[in-house]
Design a protein around this nucleic acid. Sequence first.
DNA 1: CTGTTAGCGCATTCAA
DNA 2: TTGAATGCGCTAACAG
Lengths: 328, 328
Amino acid sequence: MAKRVTILDVAAEAGVSRQTVTRAMNDMGDISDATRRKVLAAAERLGYRPSRFARNLVTRQKTHALGLVVASFRNPYFTELAGDLVEAAAERGWQVVMASSGTEAEAINLLSNQVDVVIGHFTGPDEELLAVAKGLPVVRLETPSALPGVHSVEIDLRSGVVEAIRTLRERGARRFGMVDSSYSEEIGGVYGPSPRRGWFEEEVGDQLTAVVRGEESISGGGRAFARLMERHPDTDAVLMFNDLMALGAVQSAHALGIDVPGSVRIVGVDGLALGEAVDPPLTSIAMDRKGLTAHTLDIVEALAAADFARLDSINRVVASKMLWRQSA
Amino acid sequence: MAKRVTILDVAAEAGVSRQTVTRAMNDMGDISDATRRKVLAAAERLGYRPSRFARNLVTRQKTHALGLVVASFRNPYFTELAGDLVEAAAERGWQVVMASSGTEAEAINLLSNQVDVVIGHFTGPDEELLAVAKGLPVVRLETPSALPGVHSVEIDLRSGVVEAIRTLRERGARRFGMVDSSYSEEIGGVYGPSPRRGWFEEEVGDQLTAVVRGEESISGGGRAFARLMERHPDTDAVLMFNDLMALGAVQSAHALGIDVPGSVRIVGVDGLALGEAVDPPLTSIAMDRKGLTAHTLDIVEALAAADFARLDSINRVVASKMLWRQSA
DNA sequence: CTGTTAGCGCATTCAA
DNA sequence: TTGAATGCGCTAACAG
């Protein structure tokens, strides 16, 4: 690769000092129109591009960047989250860098010298995050953090699960089933059943028919739902692990000739806008995503104000609330 | 804001030289375990975070970043595109920074000192892009570019539109309608009807019933579709501007008791994975998104190899091909 | 194993 | 209106 064209090359080419080049490149005034043109022409001739690193270094980093780690772009939850975050971040003058490849550790590593802080629905323990982040502050979504340097916005899904089941009962449901994610199995079974499954079983009590596990995708959700209904045809309400899988359940019910919500009520989790697009529109335990992004950015700004030093854990909580559409 | 903690502060605190601090922070070897601990402790005590700009400056920028400008995160097309791009980019060692706020010019401006090149479905002319990008290379998606410094990956949608209509005819369709995007009206009517509308009308000929315009959203598509069918109930095939709007059309047809594809065949554009989630699954003119991202990254790497100098336009073309699902 | 010397490429003082 | 010095914070190359 050829040696980089620097401001000095342009200065030489134009026969002026480097200052004059800076002035011309940044529309700074205090420069005659003639020299500006001359400099700009020289810059273009040489194909000059100012180094963004040198510039940011000397201007004392006025623009910050946060890294968002997502498990998969195939799940609209993450893309909707990313959208919200990018928009909210832009309003506060932050840029968002995305990463999704491989493991959490790899993603964080990739991000580590591009951003000031990393954010994500991390599954690993705080210690592990701290180790891979090497001092880079971390904000974990969904689950609370404890160690300094790791902060969190917890999502209170439990109250949503409880509310969902109680209301389903009021609407006549008596036989509850659930489709959990098989994710934990895939990664070696380190993680047990999802917390939401625990809350579900606790609240449902002896009205439980069964919990089956499915892959986190539309079709995976559909297959798991079909399996559940085959084994327990008397099930009249199903909690799906998330909206993505619930979409598959609605589709699957249709294919099996099962009436929704007449025979079975279906509830998802996440509150995706996408749930509107299916028929019947999906009822969901929605997390307050506006609040989620707002709290996240609050934390991130607090970290920025402290120059990204390792602060004691900042923890926030956002609520979940039922989004009753037509599937339940 | 307090003065930033630098490597020198840590060196002083630990009683070593700055180089030793570097070695400790970067696991570099050639350092005793004792001093490493000492340095790390000092760094933590002071809350030291290496400046990513200074580091990248001196290491000669080995990692690049590209900026992706999207019109809206509400349209799954962009989120699916973003997902593809982030994954493909990661494989080649690139980071992706996203922006969506406000106008194209604003988004490019925000990105300008964070990335090495910007990419997006830009609607403005090359001249305008060049002006706002200030020398930052631009890759425009969908439409071809001509000026040096602006490159492109064109999407050949025309052949897809033609193929769609011909096959629809083979399947018995005789009365064609279309729902176009109202976007161009909203921004002052500077842009005429969409090119895909032109190709549609040309191919359909006198079998056209009507073209109506709708807002680019699920509900907007649904309303426009309903309007079209109300005015021209004999329409038996409809091309929707994109899949997002087509989703609304399928939903609307269902609500109106119109059988799809029995009474009306519905075709979208984009080939979203999401089209699988509705009933009936959406037929679509799919662009080759794998090819799109691959070509884009090829261009981007060519630009990097030239140190992001202003190269003559690089233009690539990707095909579109029909994705026959059940709605048509 | 540790410290010293040199830049990386730019913008912000100051002088002229 | 222009130019000369200075430093942002870090790592690479060399020294010891």
